[in-house]
């Protein structure tokens, strides 16, 4: 494992992503079909699509903040959580 140069922050990031996928798997087994619906953006999305949009959107929110304002990153964290909430709630 040493060649992978793990650090705790990156490990936590991946643990977060993989546990989100785990939660989605459990939800899918409990109620199959992915909770498909047509959301606010006019797209037909499933839970998985919403997670994908939340993660990709959050990456862009953090990168944009970092590029325009730099650290610290508390404000984009709040924006990213709002974005993810919006994704799961409306999209």
């Amino acid at each position: 494992m040493s060649w992978m140069a793990w650090t705790w922050p990156t490990a936590l990031l991946f643990i977060g992503i993989f546990s989100a996928m785990g939660v989605l798997t459990i939800l899918e087994i409990k109620s199959p079909g992915g909770a498909e619906r047509k959301g606010a953006l006019g797209l037909v999305t499933t839970r998985g699509d919403r997670l994908f949009l939340s993660l990709l959107g959050s990456a862009y929110i953090f990168l944009a903040w970092l590029g325009f304002f730099g650290t610290p990153l508390w404000a984009p964290l709040v924006i990213a959580i709002c974005w993810a909430t919006f994704c799961f709630w409306k999209v």
């Binding site: 140069a5 650090t7 990156t10």
Partner: peptide, 8 residues
């Protein structure tokens, strides 16, 4: 994942 680790 290794690339992510390298990037920081």
């Amino acid at each position: 994942m290794t690339v992510v680790n390298y990037s920081v």
